[in-house]
C-alpha cells in the first residue's frame, strides 16, 4: 500500500487535447497534428499515454489509419528505409 501511494504522487493529470481545444479538429489529411499521436515507429499512441478521451481516441485512430492509406503517415519505418 505504501508503495502505491508513493507512486501516486507522480501522477500528472492528463487531459484530452481535443476536448480542451475545440479549435483542434481531427482530420486524416492533417498529418502534422496526427504525428503527435503516433510513435517514431508509426504506432498509434495509447490513450493511457496520450490522455485522450475515448471519443476522440476513436476518431483519431480512424484518422491515422486513413492517413496511412494515403501515405501521409507510415505503417512502419522498418521496411521503408
Amino acid at each position: 500500500m505504501a508503495m502505491r501511494s508513493k507512486r501516486r504522487t507522480f501522477h500528472r493529470r492528463k487531459v484530452c487535447r481535443f476536448c480542451v481545444d475545440a479549435e483542434m479538429k481531427i482530420d486524416y489529411k492533417d498529418s502534422k497534428t496526427l504525428r503527435y499521436f503516433v510513435t517514431e515507429r508509426g504506432k498509434i499512441v495509447p490513450r493511457r499515454i496520450s490522455g485522450n478521451c475515448a471519443k476522440h481516441q476513436r476518431v483519431l485512430t480512424l484518422a491515422v489509419k486513413r492517413a496511412r492509406q494515403i501515405a501521409l503517415l507510415p505503417f512502419t519505418t522498418v521496411h521503408t528505409v
Binding site: K29, S31, G42, R68, A71, L72, L73, P74, F75, H79, T80
Partner: peptide
C-alpha cells in the same frame, strides 16, 4: 492541389507525390 510532398513510404517506386484534394 496540395503540392508535392514526400510520401511516408514508397508507392509504385516513387518517394514523392503530388497530392490533390
Amino acid at each position: 492541389s496540395w503540392g508535392k510532398k514526400k510520401l511516408a513510404y514508397p508507392v509504385k517506386k516513387r518517394i514523392r507525390g503530388h497530392y490533390v484534394l
